[in-house]
Design a protein around this nucleic acid. Sequence first.
DNA 1: ACAATGCTATTTTTT
DNA 2: ATAGCATTGT
Length: 781
Amino acid sequence: MTANTNFLAHLNSSQRRSVEHYCGALLVVAGAGSGKTRALTYRIANLIRTHHVDPAHILAVTFTNKAAKEMRSRIELLFAQQQAELKFGKPWGALDDYQQTQLRSHVYKTIIKDLWIGTFHGLFSKVLRFDIEKYQDEKGRTWNKNFSIFDDSDCQGLVKQIVVKQLDLDDKKFEPRAVRYAISTAKNQGLSPDEYSKQQNDYRGRVISDVYKHYQDALCANNALDFDDLLLVPVQLFRQNAQVLDYWHRKFRHILVDEYQDTNRTQYDLIQLLVTNGVDSKTFNNWEHRSIFVVGDADQSIYSFRAADFTILMNFQDDFGDSMPDDRTETMVKLEENYRSRENILAAANHLIQHNTQRIDKILKATRGEGEPIFLYKADNEIDEAEFVVSQIRKLLRENPELNYGNFAALYRTNAQSRPIEDAFVRSQIPYTIVGGLKFYDRREIKDIVAYLRAIANPNDTVSLLRVINTPRRGVGQTTIDNLQNAAQQLGVPLWEILNDETSVKTVAGRSSKGVLNFAEIINKWRSESETRPVVDIVTGIVEDTGYVHELQTQGTDEALERIQNVQELVNATIQFQEESDEPSLEAYLASAALSSDLDNLQEGKEAVSLMTLHASKGLEFPIVFLVGLEAGLFPSFRSLNDPMAVEEERRLCYVGITRAQEMLYLSHARERRLYGSREPAIRSQFIGELPPELLNSNLRTKIKAQTPDRTSPKDPKTVGKTNAQTTGWRVGDRVIHRSFGVGQISHVFGTGNKQSIAIKFPNLGQKIVDPKIAGLQKID
DNA sequence: ACAATGCTATTTTTT
DNA sequence: ATAGCATTGT
C-alpha cells in the first residue's frame, strides 16, 4: 500500500476526499484551475488500484474527445509510474525510452483499453453499434448497426428538402436553420415527433412538428441518425427494453461525468437510467459496488444554446445526494483552491462572476501570489487591436527568454474575429494555430471522400450517394439524378437499389448511364474490399479509382493544390486512426470522423500562438492570455442583450476566458470595428466596468470607473419596497407572472433569503432562472 | 450538362 | 467582404 499513500500525497484535503470516494453519489464542485482533471483521473486509478474495480465497469464522460484522450493518457501514466517501481524498482524517470514504452503499452492492454472514456456522443454511438437493432420508434421505424451519423449540414439539407419539396412551403418563412434548431431542441427535451406534436397549438408549431415527422422518416430511410439521436435513441431504447438497460446498468457500475454543468436533459436521462436501472432517483438506494461521480462548475456553464441546463448540476444533491446543507453534506465536495492563476486574475474573475444572480456560492482562492496587474487596451479599431497583441507578444518574448509562442493565446467571442489577428500574425511572421472555425471534416473535399466511405458502409445512405454520384464530374446531371430518384421512389426502394441494377440504370439514365454504372461499380468494388482491407486502403483506392485528386491536379489552382494537401491529410488521419484505435473498422472510423472536432488536433508544446473562441478555450490554460473584442453587442453578444439570463451566460463566458490565464491577462476593445464590411462604432463592454478598477492598468488617461450599478445594491429603486414584500414564500408549483416572460410555473427554488433565485417554466420559453428580487414577479392564485 | 453571373445571408458559441 | 447559392445562358 505504499504506492497508494504515495500517490495520494500531493492532493489537498478536498481533492483527496473526491479521489477516495468509492460507492454512492458525489458532486464535486470544481472551480476553474482547481485540479478537477486530477481528481477525475486519480479517482479512476484509485478505483482500480485500491478497490479492485474492473476497468470494464467504469464509464467516464468527458466534454471533448481531446479531454478523453488526455484522461486516458494520464491514467496510463499513473499506472506505468507505479509499475516502474514494482517491476524495475526504479522511479519512472530513471527508465529508458524503451522500458517506458513497454510499460505504457502493457498498461494500455491490461487496463486502459477496457475503460469506456469519451464524450456522450462517442460513448453512446458505441452503445448503439451493439444494440440499435433492438430499437423501434413509435412509428415502427428501425435502424441497423451500419447507421450513418449525419452532421449539421446534412441535417439542414434534409430539412430544407422537406420544407421546400415535400411540404411545398416557403423557406423564407420556415428557414431550414430555424426549423432544424426547433427539432433539435425538441429532441434535447426528449420529445418524439408525436409527443412534440401534441404540444403545438399554433400554425407554425404544427408545421414544424410535421417537418419533424418527415425528418425522422428521411433519417430512417437513410439508416442515419443525427447528433441528438445518438443520445435520444439510447434513452428511448433503455426505456422500452428492460433487458438492454439492465445489461448496461450492470456493466457501468461506476460512472463519472466531467463538465456536468453542461449536460442537457437527454444526457441526464441517460445517466439517471444507467445509475438506477430505471428506478426513480429518490427511491433508488442500492449503492453497493456502484457510484455516480460528477464534476462541474455552474459558473462555467456556457452551452445553454445547445440545451445544456446547469440546474441539473444544481439539482444533483436532490437527485442522487443526501440533500443536506452544504456544511453537513456527505455527497458534495468543493474544490476552491486555484493552482492556475495569479491572485490579480482570480480577483477579477471572482469580482465579475458575483454580478450573476444564479450560482452556487463559491470563491476561488489564490495559491500563487499576486502577479502583474491586468492590462486594458483601448484600440482604435480591430487592426490596431491585433497589432497591440503582436507588439505585446514581441515585447514579452524579448523580456522573458523562458517564454515561447506556445505560451500565448488570443481568445475571442466569434470565429470571424480571428481574421484581423491572423493577418497581423502573418505580417509579423508570428507562428499561430487556429482552433475551430472550419473543422477539418467540414471541408468540401474531405466531406466528399467521407461521403464515399459512408455510402460504402451504409447502402441506404442516399444523402451521401447523391453528394458524390457526380463528384468528380462523370456526366451525371440533375435530370438524370431526378429520374433515378423518381424511379427509386416509385418502387419504394433506396436509391442504391436502382444504381446497383444495370438494366434499371440503362432504362432510366439513358445516355448518362455510363457514368452512373461506373460510379456503382466503384462503390461495389470497395464495399467488398472493405470487409478485409483497412480504412486507409479504401480511402486511397477511392481517390485513385474516382480520379478525385487527378481532377484537382488538372485544375492546378492554388485552391485545388490545398485540397490535394487536405486529402493527403485525410489519408494520414486514417493511418493514425488505425494505430490508435482498438477497433479499426470502417464504421468506427466514420463515427470518429463525424464526432471529431478541430479542437482535438490542438497539439500542446507546439511553439505557436493559439487563436480560438472562448467556448473552445474551456478546459485549457495559457501563461499569457489576450481577451479581445470586449465590446457591447459583440461580447456580450447583441442577441443576449434583452435577456438577463443570456447576459449571465455571456458573463460566465467572460469568466471562463479570464480564468484561462496563468500569469498575465490582457483585455482589449476597439473604438470602431468593421462588421459585414462597413465600419461600426463600438462601445466597451459592460463587463469591463464590472472588474475591480484598482486591478486594471490601461493605456487610457482617464481612470476606469465602474459604471454599471450593482444589481443587488439597495440603492436601485426597483429592488426596494416592491420585493421586500415577497422575497420569501416562493414554492415549487406556484404559478407566477413575470414582467417580460409572462405566466409560468415555479419548478425549483434555489437558496434562501437574499440569495434566493428561482427556476420558472414558461410554456413557450422553456425554463428560466430569475432573481425574484429584480424580476418583478407576482404570484397568481 | 455545365459555366458564368448575380444575389444573398452570414456572424454566437459546438458534440 | 465573401462564400455559397440560384438562376440564367451556352
